[in-house]
Design a protein around this nucleic acid. Structure first.
Lengths: 321, 321
DNA sequence: TTGTATGCGTTATCAC
DNA sequence: GTGATAACGCATACAA
């Protein structure tokens, strides 16, 4: 491996001069500087990250942690993060799984964005206590080194529920996420609030898992109990897709016998027949905002918790009761 | 930051003893070792990655490079990679964009899996010359430090084309990927071979881009020229989705007037009506194999280029001519 | 079994 | 403007 030492030797200068030249310091003459740069290029010199990181105590890398790589939501989200990071000279790396947790405490990254159930809140608080900067997208956590950038789950779930109520539906199934999911619990709360406020609205909770299979299982239950048209609010689109898919195997029609609304507005919903009603938000903006906040924290700027706004997307998957 | 020096001081031993103890060396007494470990835990000691990397000249991290984060194919692929890496004590990080290229030459990772158009082949060869280990999934490249794990594009495209020919189609549109795409060119070659071998088969090339929008544009052209039923081989599913979507706005029916086959078997195709015929392969296995090969190279084991096999998935998107 | 000493490749603080 | 030199935190050959 070619190091600054090699360049120094070849240029007949000291390593400190080389370091200055490579870092564009004005302390060195243009002439020596350009000579050193030429030699560096000639030798194919590449700085060693480990050495630089060790000395500077920063890596200029941000880590995004996901529960798994399979989610539909992630593409745009990561894209938003990358754009912001790159614009400020940071690199973004994406990690998943328990093993990768070490990245943060071992200082391989300067900060972390968490959308990852495999982190416990205690674990995150511990890292925050050790002065690591963290942005959480999937929980509420109060600590000076932790910033929240959360979806407006309450608004989204209210919009969806109100939409069903307005259409005259009185029997509403709610297919939830996995037990303990922050998003699921938040959304569920809003559903209860809205439907309890409405007259003659009955809601039935079905425990789901935020995956297609959960939606399919919910469909089974709903089909078994079927006696009159019903509405279903799947707390995410993935389950709505599974549910609609299962229903379409029967003689019941989505938007006529079973009315469905989802949450997330994943791309797939645009290609469903009928089009799925759902809750939309800018995933790109969510990711961008998360990284902006994180970079501010790293720069020791003050930040406030942020909220990502949502809107209702109507679709033919919901008809009049 | 608490370092082994702090532990050594508190334990009344030298830093080397601490280092030995932490690394589970048998050179140190069980008694002192456990005492040191206890102190380390008490002080919340976490090793510093930069220092370790600098000394050991390895990071135990593999980098996966993607053209962008938005692709449908990536979830399972990355999952396969992660599983293999983790099983062998490596971490996987996912990167995208030109800025992240530095990871490899700066030695932040021990090796790279490339599915990323933003790398030129010259660039990769240069890294390989500097003894960096690389597995490519998206091009042919011959170098002792580069291993290929490629899809069997030729077989896949042949299967798809033969399927259309068998169904009696004589006018076949091919919607290609972006100019210069290796996969696209490979598939195109096989299409020509098969259709030229068949009697009375006419093929028409439409330049696409592997995105939905390319499929939509292709649909426009096909609709304009429409005078009799035609078949379309979209060289990936993403474009097939865009194409079908555009067609479904018209009075023409997929599988009746326009017959479509794709490539990749992305999850979305399962939810299309009618179901898209396509070429399937195990994305999980592809990723796993790529990392197995890479880890072997890192361990200085000999490897041969590998091929990922494909199968035809029939669907109602293709009917008899 | 433990301690001493050196070096990994950089950056940065001093002198000169 | 340039050059010694000392860290950064860790691993390890060698000495004791």
């Amino acid at each position: 491996m070619v190091s600054i030492k090699d360049i120094a030797k070849k240029a007949g200068v000291s390593i400190s001069t080389v370091s200055y030249a490579l870092n564009g310091s004005s302390k060195v003459t243009d002439e020596t500087s350009s000579r050193i740069l030429a030699i560096a290029r000639e030798l194919n010199y590449v700085p060693n990250a480990a050495a630089r990181n060790l000395k500077k105590r920063e890596t200029k890398i941000i880590g995004a942690f996901l529960t798994d790589f399979k989610g539909e939501v992630y593409g745009e989200l990561l894209d938003g993060m990358k754009k912001v990071c790159n614009a400020q000279g940071y690199d973004l790396i994406v990690c998943s799984g328990k093993q990768s947790h070490r990245m943060l405490p071992e200082r391989m990254i300067d900060g972390a964005v968490i959308l990852d159930q495999t982190f416990t809140s205690e674990e995150l608080l511990m890292y925050a206590d050790r002065n690591h900067k963290i942005v959480v997208l999937d929980r509420e956590l109060d600590h000076p080194n932790i910033n929240q950038v959360l979806l407006d789950n309450k608004a989204g779930a209210s919009l969806a529920t109100e939409y069903l109520v307005e259409q005259g539906h009185q029997k509403i199934y709610i297919v939830t996420g996995p037990p303990g999911s922050f998003d699921s619990e938040q959304r569920m709360k809003a559903v209860k609030l809205v439907s309890d406020r409405a007259a003659n609205v009955e809601w039935i909770e079905i425990v789901g898992d935020f995956n297609k299979s959960g939606g399919e299982r919910a469909a089974e239950q709903i089909l078994q109990e079927y006696n009159r048209p019903a509405a279903v609010f799947c707390l995410n689109d993935e389950m709505a897709v599974g549910l609609c898919n299962r229903i379409s195997d029967t003689e019941l029609r989505i938007g006529e016998h079973i009315h469905v609304v989802g949450f997330d507005n994943i791309e797939l919903t645009r290609y469903m027949q009928p089009r799925l009603a759902t809750i939309d938000y800018s995933k790109h903006k969510w990711g961008a905002l998360a990284c902006e906040q994180l970079l501010k924290m790293i720069a020791d700027e003050k930040v406030e918790h942020e909220r990502v706004y949502v809107t209702l997307v109507k679709g033919e998957s919901v008809g009049k009761a």
